[in-house]
Design a protein around this nucleic acid. Structure first.
Length: 427
RNA sequence: GGGGGGAUGCCAGAGCGGCCAAAUGGGGCGGACUGUAAAUCCGUUGUCGUCAGACUUCGAAGGUUCGAAUCCUUCUCUCCCCA
């Protein structure tokens, strides 16, 4: 059983914390929760950082509760948002909820006895609450002045905020209060942007129950160059394998800069301090081995996806980026081939269509549209730049006939530069 | 209510009758160097075209002109100042 606060401090995962939390944690098992609004049908790597808070919390012997915001998701959190957001439809929300709950369930231990994790949905306690009851039970206890003083809504008070979004902090505050009264939860955690919402809950508990509650936030993860973390060219890195393939996911971590990797390994892996420090040293000795990146990529791919997905992603990376030659590509057995290329994008084309293609450029422009190329001109450029490969052989003439030999009698491996690949399947 | 700006490519921002598919910076992409890092450097960045060139872009619609992102009219949206 580790010391929760000390552990997080070392990992650089504490942004802000209410003063007496540490002392309270020492008294014995606490329950703590984090809320996740179902704004998308999958969590992304940014959410993973807060999930890690729950994970460490549980490993330290405390009881973690993940709350899906079925109700709060209907309102929309205005914290640090520049503008009012559009509502998600109820169908979307319930669709999203079910997926997010499934994902959250992967990360925590639900059968560890007293500190088993719990998964709740705040729609369960908000659904039956009437507007009048809410005003009398919740609204009465928090002054508008207090709510407006929050840094998180300051900008919106100037630019405009609807009553609905402004009420968000009361809902989140009530969640905390509800969890306190129904199961003794005294700690709420979250990202740094949530501080304002967390303290509203603490305030509500203090006023209504005259009890002390606590908050802890984790810093927003950014990249060393200041750009947003968790995005690739394609967009967000999601935890859902159908939205971000395990291979892309693996590659995302593998491509972290050294500077980022040193911070990320502490936040995203569960390795002990001694192990991590040793890895950092080893990495400093031979940075080209990218020990840290590999370790992060491995541990996370396994945790978020599976051991098999990790093996596959590593193998695929090896083949696509290693010193693999065209010959290696040809020598792959069908089974290996399928495993290795499982998670790179695949486009189908009929044999008949392929036969009508006069030039490679047409083939690549039509199949790669929206995947790697936006126009024929872009393909032409790629060929001029010498960055287009088919089956690992460089394409030099845009107008050569696309009569390539097919891999496994049905595939063509198209490559743009070093990092971008897709497969054309002839059917 | 009165007065004055502005709307340009992914973003920022020049251009203010022809030399403008539109400077410059950022971003993106590719390459070199490496380690599938970082930094740096080089190339590229509307579409179509086997590269000659053609076509569509500068808030929207009209107009002036041999010729408009650039001038005029109307409209839409924005920002600032005074009240």
């Amino acid at each position: 059983m580790h010391d929760f606060i000390r552990n997080l401090t070392w990992r650089g995962m504490i942004h802000d914390i209410t003063p007496d939390l540490e002392a309270h944690l020492k008294k014995g098992m606490m329950s703590g929760y984090i809320g996740f609004d179902p704004t998308a049908s999958s969590l992304h790597v940014g959410n993973l950082a807060t999930i890690m808070l729950l994970k460490h919390f549980q490993l330290a012997g405390h009881k973690p509760i993940a709350v899906v915001g079925g109700a709060t998701g209907m309102i929309g959190d205005p914290s640090f948002k520049a503008a009012e957001r559009k509502f998600l439809s109820e169908e979307e929300l319930s669709y999203n909820q079910s997926y997010i709950m499934k994902q959250l369930a992967r990360f925590l231990d639900f059968s560890s006895g007293a500190n088993s994790a719990e998964l709740l949905n705040n729609i369960d306690w908000f659904q039956s609450m009437s507007f009048l009851k809410f005003l009398r039970e919740v609204g009465k206890h928090v002054s508008v002045n207090y709510m407006m003083a929050k840094e998180s809504v300051k900008r919106r008070l100037e630019d405009g905020i609807s009553f609905t979004e402004f009420s968000y902090q009361l809902m989140q505050g009530y969640d905390f209060y509800y969890l306190y009264t129904s199961r003794g939860v005294r700690l709420q955690m979250g990202g740094a942007d949530q501080w304002g919402n967390l303290t509203t809950g603490i305030e509500l508990i203090r006023r209504k129950a005259s009890e002390e509650a606590f908050a802890l936030t984790t810093p927003l993860i950014t990249k060393a160059d200041g750009s947003k973390f968790g995005k690739s060219e394609q967009g967000n890195i999601w935890l859902d394998p159908t939205m971000t393939s395990p291979y892309e996911f693996y590659q995302f971590w593998l491509n972290c800069t050294d500077e980022d990797a040193i911070r990320l390994i502490k936040v995203f892996t569960l390795l002990d301090r001694e192990v991590i420090e040793a890895l950092i040293q080893a990495h400093a000795r031979e940075p080209h081995q990218r020990i840290l990146q590999k370790e992060i990529a491995k541990e996370l791919t396994i945790r978020v996806h599976s051991e098999a997905d990790y093996m596959q992603a590593a193998k695929t990376s090896e083949l696509l980026f290693g010193r693999a030659t065209p010959a290696d590509l040809w020598s792959l057995g069908e089974k290996d081939f399928k495993i290795i290329f499982k998670s790179i994008p695949e486009i189908e084309i009929s044999q008949a269509d392929l036969n009508t293609m006069e030039h490679v450029i047409d083939l690549v422009a039509s199949t790669g549209a929206g995947i790697m190329f936006n126009s024929k001109a872009e393909v032409r450029r790629a060929i001029q730049e010498g960055s287009l490969y088919v089956n690992k052989e460089k394409v030099t003439d845009p107008y050569q006939k696309p009569d390539f030999r097919l891999l496994q009698d049905k595939y063509l491996l198209v490559q743009r530069g070093k990092k971008h690949h897709y497969l054309i399947k002839v059917i």
